[in-house]
């Protein structure tokens, strides 16, 4: 369908020669910097800023100060420590959800595209069911129906991203299948598995990298939304979404509680979007648009 046509450009040339100048993409570099900072915060943050994110160590609802640069929350917990903990949560959610989508989506796309026929039809029906819902609504339904917890939220987010990966991989595989080198490989007696791994998969890697980066931001945003609705990470554990939910009750007393977690989400998501855009320019400048557009959604 439309996916095939929109993504056609990605695979026309199997091995792209990368011009170094392309890597000097300012937006992509900014994105890479933000993403690195986020990863560093998640990994090292708690060793540098040693306050316990769950320990009510101070007065309630304090404004930012040297002792608590992001202020304290309704129980007197250090907001910076909670933001740092939230960065671990967000990255974990992104990694797990994307891994689910990457593995399952790639598998479905590969099998459907490579074998075609009935298998293709059946697998694409499953994808259609997933596509029968707007992403966030599907995430709400799945996370709500599995029971509210972060594990289930990650699963739900993974599931809603599967179709995007499956379709892009399938389209790419269909494209590659038309090339002569596949036929030669077959003629030389290569097994299905070997052909898929050696010849088909490498040609799908470039779009997969871009998709992974872009959908990382979708995963983080969706987890924040689910936690905000009480369907993701459960309080008292800190996650950016549920911090914002709590903050809503204290808008009059402490505006800071509403500011920092929201900023954190925005900056990190922006980082991944910048990086994704930059990578796209590098790996395939012909594809326009961005997250959620035709190329990636359908």
């Amino acid at each position: 369908m439309t996916a095939a046509s929109a993504n056609a450009g990605w695979h026309a040339v199997p091995r792209r020669k990368l011009i170094p100048a392309r890597w000097r993409n300012p937006i992509g570099l900014v994105g890479a910097a933000i993403v690195s900072l986020c990863i560093l915060t998640a990994v090292l943050g708690r060793f540098i800023w040693t306050n316990d994110p769950n320990d009510p160590i101070s007065n309630r609802l304090e404004a930012p100060s040297w002792a608590h640069p992001f202020g304290t929350d309704d129980l007197g917990r250090d907001t910076l420590a909670r933001i740092i903990h939230g960065s671990q949560v967000s990255l974990e959610v992104g990694l797990v959800a994307i891994s689910i989508a990457l593995v399952v989506g790639t598998l479905i796309g590969l099998l459907a595209g490579y074998f075609g026929g009935f298998l293709d039809l059946a697998l694409m029906r499953i994808i259609d069911i997933l596509f029968a819902f707007p992403g966030l609504v599907l995430a709400i339904v799945i996370a709500g129906l599995l029971g509210a917890s972060r594990r289930n939220a990650m699963l739900a987010i993974g599931v809603i991203i599967i179709p995007a990966f499956a379709r892009v991989v399938r389209a790419a595989v269909l494209e590659v299948m038309g090339f002569p080198f596949i036929e030669s490989a077959r003629a030389l007696g290569g097994g299905h598995l070997r052909i898929m791994l050696r010849h088909v998969l490498p040609n799908v890697i470039a779009p997969l990298i871009v998709l992974t980066t872009l959908y990382f931001s979708t995963a983080i945003l969706t987890e924040a939304a689910l936690s905000f609705l009480g369907l993701g990470t459960q309080p008292p554990e800190a996650a950016w979404g549920n911090m914002l939910q709590t903050a809503r009750s204290y808008i009059d007393q402490s505006i800071w509680m509403s500011i920092f977690p929201g900023l954190a989400i925005m900056v990190v998501v922006l980082g991944f979007n910048f990086l994704g855009d930059g990578l796209r320019d590098v790996l395939d400048p012909r594809v326009g648009g961005g997250v959620g557009d035709v190329a990636t959604k359908k």
């Binding site: 937006i27 931001s217 945003l221 924040a224 939304a225 905000f228 979404g241 914002l244 903050a247 809503r248 808008i251 505006i255 509403s258 929201g262 989400i265 925005m266 900056v267 998501v269 922006l270 979007n273 910048f274 855009d277 961005g290 997250v291 959620g292």
Partner: peptide, 21 residues
């Protein structure tokens, strides 16, 4: 373009709160 990327990154539930404030 940058505004567009920010628009893609801002959580709508946060934006709603900010608008209200």
């Amino acid at each position: 373009r940058v505004g567009g990327l920010i628009g893609l990154s801002i959580p709508n539930f946060w934006l709603a709160t900010l608008l209200l404030i």
